[in-house]
Measured scan of single mutants.
Amino acid sequence: MTEYKLVVVGAGGVGKSALTIQLIQNHFVDEYDPTIEDSYRKQVVIDGETCLLDILDTAGQEEYSAMRDQYMRTGEGFLCVFAINNTKSFEDIHHYREQIKRVKDSEDVPMVLVGNKCDLPSRTVDTKQAQDLARSYGIPFIETSAKTRQGVDDAFYTLVREIRKHKEKMSKDGKKKKKKSKTKCVIM
């Protein structure tokens, strides 16, 4: 069974824990209790493949930012979460993405942009803004509501699919490099 290491990042209060708990335990946590770091595991079937999701729910508070490099190193894919009623959390996505790329030393890291709290009427981040940002990053965008469960499975499952595509691409690139290195030079 394939294991996928997913990391949920975003500013404090955007609903990272609520999304994760909704996926794992099928219930909505409405009281806000700032996370330092929590880890969850769940076995699911995605596109006919049974897999184990190892999900790291991270601290959004700035005082825990020193811990970010460590979990970013171990993560295979990242859910970059903002709240649709919090423009600052949307603007912060850029910083999370840049930090992930720096730590992973790669421009090509599996990510999904997630606009959470889409059940709320007080939207300050337009869907088109988020779609445009995701398009500019070359990553999928999904709106979710941890409260109603809308888009929750889709967000995590899409990230797994992005990781699969990335692994497939990397193995193809690896095979191309191996083929090239088999060419021999004969000096007579």
Rank of each mutant, 00 (worst) to 15 (best):
T2R: 11
E3C: 05
E3P: 10
E3M: 06
E3V: 04
E3N: 12
Y4S: 10
Y4A: 14
Y4I: 13
K5G: 02
K5R: 13
K5V: 03
K5D: 01
K5C: 02
L6W: 15
V7A: 05
V8C: 03
V8I: 10
G10E: 01
A11W: 05
A11N: 05
G12F: 01
V14T: 04
V14N: 15
G15N: 01
G15W: 01
K16D: 15
S17L: 00
S17G: 01
S17M: 00
A18M: 03
L19D: 07
L19M: 06
T20N: 05
I21D: 03
I21E: 00
L23V: 11
L23H: 09
I24E: 00
I24R: 02
I24F: 03
Q25C: 13
Q25K: 12
N26C: 12
N26W: 06
N26Q: 11
H27W: 15
H27K: 13
F28V: 02
F28K: 00
F28E: 00
F28W: 11
F28P: 01
V29D: 01
V29N: 02
V29H: 07
D30E: 05
D30H: 10
D30K: 05
D30R: 05
E31Q: 13
E31A: 11
E31G: 10
Y32S: 04
Y32C: 05
Y32H: 03
D33W: 01
D33M: 01
D33L: 01
P34L: 14
T35N: 15
T35D: 04
I36P: 00
I36C: 09
I36R: 00
I36N: 00
I36T: 00
E37H: 02
E37L: 02
Y40N: 00
Y40R: 00
R41V: 00
R41M: 01
K42N: 03
K42A: 02
K42V: 03
Q43M: 12
Q43S: 09
V44P: 04
V44G: 07
V44S: 05
V45T: 12
V45H: 07
I46L: 05
I46R: 10
D47T: 03
D47V: 02
D47H: 03
G48Y: 04
G48F: 02
E49D: 07
T50H: 09
C51R: 03
L52I: 05
L52E: 03
L53K: 13
D54L: 00
D54Y: 02
D54N: 04
D54F: 00
D54C: 01
I55Y: 14
I55P: 00
L56Y: 07
L56Q: 15
L56K: 02
D57R: 00
T58C: 13
T58G: 05
T58K: 02
A59D: 04
A59V: 13
A59W: 06
G60C: 15
G60K: 15
Q61H: 04
Q61P: 14
Q61M: 03
E62W: 04
E62F: 03
E63V: 01
E63M: 01
E63H: 04
E63W: 01
Y64N: 05
Y64F: 05
S65R: 03
S65D: 10
S65V: 02
S65T: 11
A66D: 13
A66K: 05
M67S: 03
M67F: 06
R68P: 01
D69W: 01
Q70A: 13
Q70S: 13
Y71M: 12
Y71C: 15
M72W: 06
M72T: 08
R73H: 13
R73P: 03
T74F: 04
T74E: 15
G75W: 03
E76N: 15
G77S: 01
G77V: 11
G77R: 03
F78H: 04
F78Q: 13
F78S: 02
L79V: 13
L79Q: 00
C80Q: 02
C80W: 01
C80H: 04
C80L: 14
V81S: 11
F82H: 08
A83L: 05
I84M: 15
N86R: 06
N86T: 02
K88S: 15
S89A: 14
F90E: 06
F90M: 15
E91G: 03
E91R: 10
D92G: 05
I93F: 13
H94S: 15
H95D: 13
H95P: 02
H95A: 15
Y96F: 15
Y96R: 08
R97D: 06
R97Q: 08
R97T: 12
R97W: 14
E98L: 01
Q99L: 14
I100P: 01
I100M: 05
I100N: 02
I100Q: 00
K101P: 01
K101F: 06
K101Q: 04
R102F: 03
R102E: 11
V103K: 14
V103M: 15
K104D: 10
K104A: 14
K104V: 08
K104C: 14
D105S: 13
S106N: 10
S106H: 07
S106V: 10
D108N: 11
D108I: 05
V109A: 09
V109R: 12
V109N: 03
M111C: 07
M111P: 01
V112F: 05
V114R: 01
V114T: 01
V114I: 12
G115W: 08
G115C: 10
N116P: 00
N116V: 14
N116F: 03
K117W: 12
K117I: 15
C118M: 12
D119A: 15
D119N: 15
D119I: 10
L120V: 13
P121W: 10
P121R: 08
S122C: 10
S122W: 07
R123Y: 10
R123Q: 12
V125W: 08
D126I: 07
D126Q: 06
T127I: 10
K128G: 06
K128H: 05
K128T: 07
K128S: 07
K128W: 05
Q129K: 13
A130I: 13
A130Y: 11
A130D: 05
Q131Y: 04
D132W: 06
L133V: 06
L133F: 05
L133D: 04
A134P: 02
R135Q: 07
S136T: 06
S136H: 12
S136E: 13
S136V: 07
Y137W: 08
Y137A: 06
Y137D: 07
G138R: 09
G138A: 05
G138S: 05
I139P: 09
I139N: 11
P140T: 04
F141C: 03
I142Y: 02
I142H: 04
I142Q: 06
T144L: 12
T144S: 11
S145R: 07
A146I: 10
A146L: 14
K147E: 06
R149G: 12
Q150E: 07
G151I: 10
G151D: 10
G151M: 06
V152C: 06
D153R: 07
D153C: 08
D153M: 09
D154R: 08
D154S: 07
D154A: 08
D154K: 06
D154I: 06
D154G: 07
A155H: 11
A155Q: 13
A155C: 11
A155T: 11
F156M: 14
F156Q: 13
F156V: 15
T158I: 14
L159H: 04
L159C: 06
L159Y: 01
L159W: 01
V160N: 05
V160C: 12
R161V: 04
R161W: 13
E162T: 10
E162V: 03
E162W: 12
E162H: 08
R164T: 14
K165H: 09
H166R: 08
H166A: 10
K167F: 08
E168F: 06
K169G: 11
K169Q: 13
K169C: 09
M170L: 06
S171M: 11
K172L: 08
K172T: 14
D173P: 12
D173R: 12
K175H: 10
K176S: 13
K176W: 03
K176M: 12
K176G: 07
K178W: 06
K180Y: 04
K180E: 05
S181H: 05
S181L: 12
S181G: 05
S181Q: 14
K182S: 06
K182E: 11
K182R: 05
T183N: 03
T183Y: 14
C185M: 15
C185V: 14
C185A: 12
V186P: 12
V186K: 02
I187F: 07
I187A: 13
M188V: 09
